[in-house]
Amino acid sequence: MTATFSQRRQEIIGDEPLISAVKDRWPALFSERQLSAEFSRIVTKDLLESFLDGLDALVPGVLQMYGEAAASGRRVRLSSVLSCLQKEDTNQNKRAAVLLGLPCYLAEDSSDIIRMCDAHGETLDVLMSGMQVGLLIGHEGPLHDAFPLDVFNVALVVEEKIILHDLRDVSTGFAMLLGAIYCLNLEYPRNMKYSFEFLQRVVMNIKPDQCSARIHGLRNKMLRYRM
């Protein structure tokens, strides 16, 4: 994969093939290990380590910011996200709350990008309908909370097809989704462009000086929480 990197990037960026064609041409790319390696070749960062380290540094301040927004009534949906942590205040659930609450805080519509999947519910074809880039978060039984506290599988969806599955948790899913967007030269989903820009510029610290005015303002606000 290292030896063929230049050829692969030229094909993906120059020809802009369908992802199904990329998968037929380069099937080895579609694994957690190879996506991480490809991302490192492009960005010279360790995908999962950089993502989790950046995320963990922000979790306390972001949760405080969510709490104030929920208490003020400006972002009512954040209250249900935060209430999940009162049941199970684990590190993984804190990470999930930050990631899944981000589009709520930024007033973005995540319905076509992040979907919960009951193992005994609708078929995958129905669940993936309309998903061009996103995550399926698998859980057992009816979902009574804003997000599942016990996730058994997270899958990456591109062009209404699963390209990677059996990811262990929500934060790993987001990291791999960001990696897939880079490796496959995809555009950020329009309905969550600020959320993904936040993950890129603030969490991953990739070209932070190029962030939009909105994300620049959010980053400055977060710095006040960390002081």
Rank of each mutant, 00 (worst) to 15 (best):
V59Y: 00
P60Y: 02
G61S: 13
G61C: 06
G61V: 03
G61H: 08
V62E: 01
V62R: 02
L63P: 02
Q64E: 13
M65E: 15
M65S: 15
M65V: 10
Y66A: 02
G67Y: 08
E68N: 13
A69P: 04
A71N: 14
A71M: 13
S72Q: 09
G73R: 05
G73K: 07
G73A: 05
G73S: 01
R75P: 07
V76F: 03
R77L: 14
R77H: 13
L78W: 03
L78C: 04
L78E: 04
S79D: 12
S79G: 11
S80F: 10
S80R: 13
V81A: 02
V81T: 10
V81W: 00
L82V: 08
L82Y: 06
L82F: 11
L82E: 10
S83D: 15
C84L: 00
C84P: 01
L85G: 02
L85D: 00
K87G: 00
K87C: 04
E88P: 01
D89F: 11
D89L: 02
T90S: 14
N91C: 11
N91W: 07
Q92T: 10
Q92Y: 08
N93W: 00
K94M: 05
K94Q: 12
R95W: 02
R95D: 07
R95S: 06
R95P: 03
R95Y: 04
A97S: 07
A97T: 05
V98H: 00
L99A: 01
L99H: 00
L100K: 09
L100H: 01
G101M: 11
G101D: 07
G101S: 12
L102W: 00
L102N: 02
L102M: 11
P103V: 08
P103Y: 10
P103W: 05
C104H: 15
Y105V: 03
Y105L: 14
L106I: 01
A107C: 07
A107M: 07
A107R: 11
E108P: 02
E108G: 06
D109E: 12
D109A: 07
D109V: 10
S110K: 14
D112N: 15
I113M: 08
I113Q: 10
I113E: 06
I113A: 08
I114N: 03
I114Y: 01
M116T: 10
C117S: 11
D118V: 02
D118W: 05
D118I: 02
A119G: 12
H120C: 11
H120D: 14
G121W: 05
G121S: 04
G121H: 03
G121P: 03
T123D: 15
T123A: 13
T123L: 12
V126H: 15
V126I: 15
V126A: 15
L127M: 15
L127F: 10
M128K: 15
M128P: 08
M128E: 11
S129N: 13
S129Q: 14
G130L: 07
G130W: 06
M131Q: 07
M131A: 06
Q132W: 08
Q132V: 11
V133C: 14
V133R: 08
G134N: 08
G134H: 09
G134E: 08
G134S: 11
L135T: 02
L135I: 05
G138H: 06
H139A: 06
H139Q: 12
E140H: 14
G141Q: 05
G141T: 08
G141H: 07
P142M: 10
L143P: 09
H144P: 03
H144A: 09
D145M: 09
A146L: 03
A146Y: 09
